[in-house]
Design a protein around this nucleic acid. Structure first.
Lengths: 214, 214
DNA sequence: GTCTATAATCAGATAGAC
DNA sequence: GTCTATCTGATTATAGAC
């Protein structure tokens, strides 16, 4: 747990430290697997401070989720809109959808990696998905689906949606960083190798979409 | 919560009812999101009974996970071994890998659907994945990867592993039944439509594997 | 803003009667 | 096997001093 607290955390203000620590712990153990006390301990602040700044535990969870969601969603929107204005290849549309995540995951800030693991948790949870994903992300997915419809004007909507579902699952597992690919491949591949993860995902998904939607 | 308890549950013995209820609740809310008391209430048994039969909460969780894991793993092994003995197409190998899940999810028994949602929870959790997936499932994945290596003898191992990773993610999200595809497609697709989910997944994944591994 | 102290609740686990 | 009762500890949340 201590290794999650970076040295320079000490310089950031306490409110941000609470968000960072909550982000890291919620991503690892889920909402119910984390206590305010654990968060406060990791953030090296008093237990009562989380409540003072964010109110109830559930409010803190939402605050953590929302903090980077807007930023991510905006970036996605911008890239997808830029694509839609001109004729684009399937690969470019998929890349535009994945780019913000790839960028976020490759940044120096470990907070972004924690956040994306949290996003994976929310995406795959039957409970949280319904509550949280419609706030920021569903809109962007609808835009992505629209771009796909332009590329596959003759495909049935069902097929496009199912294809997106498969891609979304592959993406979620990548964000989650479970370490399973490391284990199964005997260390030949790493969950943290995002370069490869995104590089291969684009042709993989493009070929798959074409097969089903063309 | 009450709707999860089926009428005929009343006839099954209490030990099984505890497992069934724990399975349903753990799948929905995760390990930490469920209390022994909730499980007992749903199973309509006394709180102390769970402890009597299964010991600690963590032991109960393992008991739930293990109950159907062996069965699933055996079926997968049988189908993959049958495939490997003769030359097979990529589609057939993928289908052999998915078949046991498809069958389980399509059965009348809602317990199997709950179990597969639990499996998705374990697969996507950084914590539980490391503890639980190696017990039964990693071995079968290695067999599946071996079959893929036969089909793509010239592909680098890394690429095969990453492709499997994407498929595994798509599968996990399907098992999780989050209801997101229903929401995004405005009800045109359903998370519970496993016929379509598996029917489209085979050509989708086959084309994707070929693109990356050929 | 920060911390101490505490209230109120609820968790897991078990002892012991039947 | 089953249930009642209870112990122990932890948790959220907050009131109030500084």
């Amino acid at each position: 747990m201590t290794e999650l607290a970076t040295q320079n955390n000490k310089e950031i203000n306490k409110k941000e430290r609470i968000l960072d620590s909550a982000e890291a712990l919620f991503a690892q153990h889920g909402y119910d697997g984390v206590t305010i006390r654990q968060i406060a301990k990791l953030a090296e602040v008093d237990v009562a401070l989380a409540n003072y700044h964010f109110g109830k535990k559930l409010d803190l969870f939402h605050a953590v989720f929302d903090r980077r969601a807007q930023q991510l969603s905006d970036q996605r929107h911008k890239l997808l809109a830029a694509q839609q204005s001109s004729m684009q290849t399937l690969e470019q549309v998929i890349e535009a959808f994945l780019m913000p995540l790839k960028m976020a995951q490759q940044t120096e800030d470990p907070g972004w990696r924690n956040y994306l693991a949290l996003l994976a948790y929310v995406m795959t949870s039957p409970v949280w998905n319904k509550i949280m994903m419609s706030k920021f992300f569903d809109k962007r997915v609808v835009e992505f689906i629209a771009a796909l419809k332009d590329i596959f004007p003759n495909a049935s909507e069902d097929k496009i949606h199912w294809c997106y579902h498969y891609m979304s699952g592959a993406l979620a597992l990548t964000l989650a960083q479970t370490g399973r690919i490391d284990r199964i491949s005997n260390g030949k591949c790493q969950s943290t190798d995002f370069d490869t993860a995104y590089e291969l995902m684009v042709p993989f998904m493009a070929a798959a979409f074409r097969k089903v939607c063309d």
